[in-house]
Design a protein around this nucleic acid. Structure first.
Length: 139
DNA sequence: GTTCTTACA
DNA sequence: TGTAAGTA
């Protein structure tokens, strides 16, 4: 169960993460500014990334390739975070009668939607979902 | 030598 | 986003 701890353990340097994700240091720092990732800091103020951070960055990269902008990515990641918290607080303390709700849309579902052609709207309309209005699908 | 911040293109 | 400058 301390697997969660291990995944959030600050281990990787900027250069390593860049190598692992294929993202430039500039990009990674930029995403941090926008709260897409929140790596720890060493005493020397050096960034220390965890496995979770790396995975997160890989997702960001994937979404970026699909044409999703920062606003859209923030929505996706924000939702995923809530999902993690929800499942984490429930998994261990689960009584047969306990009721709880998961997020309306899973990131998998969202990914499927994005894959299908939500972004095609952008090629036709002016401001596609990808240009920031992803929140419309979370009502 | 690597990473950080700030700032300009 | 890339890159330069000045640090830590």
């Amino acid at each position: 169960m301390d697997d969660r701890i291990r995944r959030n353990m600050p281990l990787f340097s900027m250069s390593i993460v860049g190598e692992l994700t294929g993202l430039s240091a500039r990009q990674i720092r930029y995403y941090e500014e926008h709260h897409l990732v929140t790596p720890e800091r060493s005493k020397g103020n050096r960034r220390l990334f965890s496995f979770n951070d790396v995975e997160r960055l890989l997702e960001i990269k994937a979404l970026l390739d699909k044409g999703v902008n920062l606003a859209g990515i923030q929505h996706v990641l924000g939702m995923k975070q809530q999902e993690e918290l929800t499942s984490a607080s429930v998994s261990d303390t689960q009584s047969p009668e306990t009721e709880y709700r998961k997020p309306d849309l899973s990131d998998d579902e969202l990914r499927k939607l994005l894959k299908q052609g939500l972004f095609d709207a952008g090629k036709h309309g002016k401001t596609s979902i990808i240009q920031g209005e992803l929140s419309r699908f979370f009502h």
